[in-house]
Every structure is written in structure tokens, then in C-alpha cells.
Design a protein around this nucleic acid. Structure first.
Length: 157
DNA sequence: TAGGCCATCTGGTCCT
DNA sequence: AGGACCAGATGGCCTA
């Protein structure tokens, strides 16, 4: 496809690279930790409920719901879960809706970045669209590959 | 039909 | 105080 010999070489190397990628097992260190499952199945609160008048409330140490404890980040709720105050922000329906809009915009820009990354990593044209996790993993290997290339690892002469 | 992927909502925490 | 970030939960869509 390319006119220049070095680009031809690059093309075949990339094709091999992409082929290898499809067969590749990713090292366990990149594997995602299994999701921590919650025993209870929390019901989604109604959008219509207004939770409190003030924007913040403070739960008593022994009065906080188990859902809040389980939903919290492990690094803040340690093995005992009593080291941090349970200050909780309560927001109105309007504020929640605004937060939802912001979150959608944030995820949209995140997906734009993923699309841009998809266009940068090599794939075969007929391949189906890469998922987000596939894109990230391919990008990691591609960067490593290009780094090795730059350092002359693949020099055969 | 099960599993993967994704969009969306939500609440907790961080940060300005 | 409130926006940004993050992760869990849920439901819809698609494919093998």
C-alpha cells in the first residue's frame, strides 16, 4: 500500500503486530479485579424524592446505613470503617439532574478521547470496533512496540 | 440465552 | 458550596 520501502517494512511489521495482538493473552497484572458484589440488591431511589433541606447532613457513626458503607471507597472505609466521619451531602432533585447532565457530558468527552485513541492504534479495517478496554490494552502494547522499534530492538542487519 | 459492552443514574469523596 | 471524579448498580442492545 505504501510507496516507500521503509514504509512497506513498517506496514508488514505493523500487520504482524496487529495479528499478534489478536492472539495475545494479556498479563494478569493488567487484569481488572473482580467486582465486589453487594449482597443486597439496592433499589434505585425515585427521582422525585427530596432528601433533606440542608445540602449536607452528618450521619451518626452507628446510624449510617450499610449501603453507604459498602458503596464507599475501600481506602476511606478501612477494615473497621470507623476512622472517617460520615459527612454526607444531600442534594435537591434539581441539583441531581444538573449533576446527571454534567456526568453525561463528562462521559461524552471521555468517549471522544477513546474514539481519538481508536484512530491512533493500528487495526484491520474489517475488524469490528474496538471496545474501550481493548483500545486501552492495544494502545499499551502499541506504545511498547513503537518504543522497542525506536530503540532498534527489531534491527536484523 | 448468557455474556460482553455501553449509557445512565447515583452517592461518596476529592478539590477549588 | 458545588463541580469533578470515581465506582457500583441497572437495564438495553448485540452477538455467539
Amino acid at each position: 500500500r505504501s510507496a516507500h520501502p521503509e514504509i512497506l517494512w513498517m506496514d508488514s511489521t505493523l500487520i504482524n503486530f496487529v495479528s499478534d495482538m489478536n492472539l495475545m493473552e494479556f498479563p494478569p497484572k493488567y487484569a481488572l479485579a473482580p467486582k465486589q458484589q453487594v449482597d443486597e440488591t439496592p433499589t434505585r431511589p425515585s427521582n422525585q424524592t427530596r432528601l433533606n433541606d440542608s445540602s449536607w447532613s452528618r450521619d451518626l457513626e452507628d446510624g449510617v446505613s450499610t449501603k453507604h458503607l459498602m458503596m464507599g471507597s475501600p481506602r476511606y472505609y478501612g477494615t473497621h470503617g470507623h476512622t472517617r466521619s460520615k459527612r454526607r451531602r444531600i442534594i435537591t432533585v434539581v441539583q441531581r439532574q444538573a449533576a446527571n447532565v454534567r456526568e453525561r457530558k463528562r462521559m461524552f468527552s471521555l468517549n471522544e478521547a477513546f474514539d481519538e485513541l481508536r484512530r491512533k492504534v493500528p487495526t484491520f479495517a474489517y475488524e469490528k470496533r474496538l471496545s474501550r478496554i481493548e483500545t486501552l490494552r492495544l494502545a499499551i502494547v502499541y506504545i511498547s512496540f513503537m518504543t522497542d522499534l525506536e530503540e532498534g530492538i527489531f534491527d536484523s542487519s
